[in-house]
Nucleic acid binder design. Structure first.
Lengths: 155, 155
DNA sequence: ACAAAAGTGTAGCCTTGGCTTTATTTGACC
DNA sequence: GGTCAAATAAAGCCAAGGCTACACTTTTGT
């Protein structure tokens, strides 16, 4: 195909501006998904450290609902991203960057759950859905959620 | 992507009931992600058929922001799931099941965007975030969104 | 102190969903 | 009716994130 090889990032000139914008949305959603899992693991490690003083791979795996090698792999990715540290046969600890991420994720999670409940979603369902939703809430939207909640009559 | 050929991961007896519940939430979020991409493609194919009368692989790829082989693979998965049909070098068409899915996804997308805007999210951001959010909105939450919107003063 | 149990690590496999490269088919234009 | 560009397909690579199986530490209990 005379389809010139162009860098993946580039949009075909043939694509309309509208197509490009929509494609960009999908790409953004995919990018969000790429960090979602790491965020969950970081948050979980933060929770475990707070509760138990340390995060063990087995505990992480149990709470995430995965096999322990999966948790080990996730920890390796987190280490590669500079979000946590670990030594063989010892616990996992968050770096400052990791702790900051975990706190941010946790706050966002709370906001999302609260907003869903404020909208009228049953608390149990809110908790369930928030797990998937939270990773796709942009800063702008999160701010709007907070503003909405602030205006709400306290229940 | 959660792998679906696993023999029903056994829950360790050692895991507390709370751990198990949380793990279940994560597993559910992962399962939602598994169908998210297919939903997007189905919706896109529906859009293209409506606009152009048929959906070509190249158009699908351009709008989704992926290379054509990626779109071809997605079509193959959709066919495997019984959601669309296609013949070599011919367009892609939705089965009744696929069309139904596309319509459902489209309606959900609209509801999510409308809700975000009602909450106070800028329309542009709402559209952007909805792309990622919609796949994690359960039927229960969607109903709550609709109910909330129905109560809202029309703008 | 030492054996068993529990925890951790490593290796290797799978599917998804991206990508590029290369080959083939179609269709449009002269 | 032939040629050529565009569309499609096919093959093969990659990383992520699951899994099992097995090896090796560390901890624990007698």
């Amino acid at each position: 195909m005379p389809n010139q090889n162009r860098p993946a990032a580039e949009m075909p000139d043939s694509a309309s501006a509208q197509d490009t914008a929509q494609a960009e949305r999908f790409n953004q959603a995919r990018a969000a998904q790429a960090v979602a899992v790491l965020e969950d693991y970081a948050e979980m490690i933060g929770d475990l450290i707070e509760e138990l003083g340390e995060a063990r791979v087995t505990d992480i795996a149990a709470r995430m609902g995965v096999a322990h090698p999966t948790a080990t792999k996730a920890v390796a990715r987190l280490k590669r991203e500079g979000l946590c540290t670990s030594r063989p046969y010892r616990g996992v600890f968050l770096t400052p960057a990791g702790a900051e991420l975990a706190e941010r994720v946790r706050a966002r999670h709370r906001t999302v759950v609260d907003l869903l409940i404020a909208i009228g979603v049953p608390p149990e369902t809110a908790e369930l859905d928030a797990e998937g939703l939270e990773h796709h809430v942009s800063d702008t939207t999160l701010a709007a959620f907070d503003a909405f909640l602030a205006k709400q009559p306290p229940r």
